[in-house]
Design a protein around this nucleic acid. Sequence first.
RNA 1: GCCGAUGUAGCUCAACGGUAGAGCAACUGACUUGUAAUCAGUAGGUUGCCAGUUCGAUUCUGGCCAUCGGCUCCA
Length: 638
Amino acid sequence: MSPEIQVTVGGSVHVARAGITAGELLKLYGDGVRPIAARVNGQVVDLSRRIETDARVEPVAADSPEGVDILRHSTAHLMAQAVQALYPGTQVTIGPTIEDGFYYDFAPPRPFTVEDLPKIEAKMRELARADLKVERIEMDRDQAIALFDSMNEKYKVEIIRGIPEDRVSLYRQGDWIDLCRGPHVPSTRYLKAFKLTSVAGAYWRGDERNAMLSRIYGTAFPSTEELEEHLRLLEMARARDHRKLGREMELFFFDPIAPGSPFFLPKGALIYNQLIEYIRRLYRRYGFQEVITPQIFKNQLWRTSGHWDMFRENMFLTTDGENASGELDYGVKPMNCPSHCVMYRSEKRSYRDLPIRFADFGRLHRAERSGTLHGLTRVRAMSQDDAHIFCTEEQIAGEIDLNLQMVREVYQTLGFGDIELKLGTMPEKHLGLEQDWHQREELLAVAMRRHGFKFEINPGEGAFYGPKIEIYVPDALKRKWQVATIQLDFNMPERFELEYTASAGTEARPVMIHRAVLGTLERFIGVLLEHTGGILPFWLAPEQVRVLSLSEKVEGYAAEIAQVISAAGFRARADLRNEKLGFKVREAELARIPYMAVVGEREAASRGVSLRRLRGEKSQTLTLEGFVDLLKAEPLPC
RNA sequence: GCCGAUGUAGCUCAACGGUAGAGCAACUGACUUGUAAUCAGUAGGUUGCCAGUUCGAUUCUGGCCAUCGGCUCCA
């Protein structure tokens, strides 16, 4: 006879025999909703978990965050089972859940293609219908190693060898078994709403020196409705892809003649320059001085800065053709910092001069690996709203403050509510003492807290020369892109032997802060387009007003209005084409023009306009003066 | 760079071992228009590039280039 234990389920206490499973308890005393897992004393476990001591047991529903995670993880297992059934000789590696889904990496005899997916999916459905019980098995580590070794699963063996515990858990469904921490659904029948989405290559343990594995991505939801909703959202996100919008809105294009290097068309260049102008206005307020620096430097500069060793693979090298050996003795700049150091060094500096804030919109070129290029978000030719601050150690805190404030202002103005901040801390390869690092990391952390920013720690992700704050913004598909950055640098001033004369008359070394707010303008525009779906704030819209004429009779009046609005300082055009109004409205809507001024004979007679706003249903009638006033009331960022 | 896929008219896409077709855009004309597509006609392509197989390749094969989804790297 088993001893009795006290279990708390759903707020009430019950007496049960020890060894009863969590699933049985929830069935007896639960709220009737069928759970897919249980939470025992806060820990999520299988429903088959036996309860041996007094415990608090709660259900984990399929549609709870933990439930969805289990569902996806179990679906990944189901996929692996299907794959191994269909493609003998395929080894399994790892299969975690990710945001919105899961993946599983395999070492197959030949890489998978999208054509394999329907077959695998069909097999998965078959296995799900078979209602295979998912069992947890615990065994000694050595036993597990022997087992997977006998199955010729060498990746699994390697994984287990890396596990410190003596006991490991495995899960079995039908005749298929995998190493896994769990928990999982009780049986494959619980897996209904899933879909395999794509295949990709991925390196074993994420290291490109290792073997290339074949990864299959998929997703799963508690219900088919949710799955379909998710797929629908993905479809909608694709419509907001900045590459698509760039074409439709005639902002930029790419040509194979310059891979990774956007051509900004007039409208795109307008957005680009408006952003620069905005930042320039802020620079006046925040005390930055804009400078212009060279594009191409002798390699000596890169040797001094350290880019020669750290960044040469990503640099375009060139020559002026004058050295006899034909050696590529010049490099096109990938970053502005070295030239700002040269600029700093061009004069004797005093502590009274600091901080010095050099801002530079110079063009940068980076020889990014071809496979990494991605529209505007990953380019080879770019400009940044880059600046380098030279200051004393005591001034660091104040400078961080200043820049965080600017970051806050800019992202608020541009309507990004969901920026993410991260603190990159000391990497393994680093310069300087550990205690100095911690002190400087704390400086950054304190500043972020003071500004009310929440942030995550990105351990070991600082630059080798100092800790950094990174600011990320998601694109339409929720991929995060780093835009702004604030980095402390104690290395570059050293390499360039930068100095200033301190108040005591002695020479001291300044600290350098690298920072950008929008970051790379190309990337920022890409993210901004996806964020807004192309519906830009008025001041950034390439064409702000389009006057739509109704017939030839009002051509003159329409042209006059466009003229008046242009003269008032706005970007306006008249569409006098011989087309129906509906057609012109449609085109203006697709071009995402904030204001459409419709004029027909009524408006011409009263010297007014019928105003339609972008994505607006109703139109309103205004006088011409009233319209111009309305435009003037549009907020400018600063 | 690596794995997989894709590349046909300006754009979105068809078709096919026997030298390519639609819609939109462009151009011309008619219509004179009231808030997301008026009608008709015309023109537009060495099917990404280079080889190979074949009587014949846009189609099959290989190489290269670019792009897309990932990996790696990173703003």
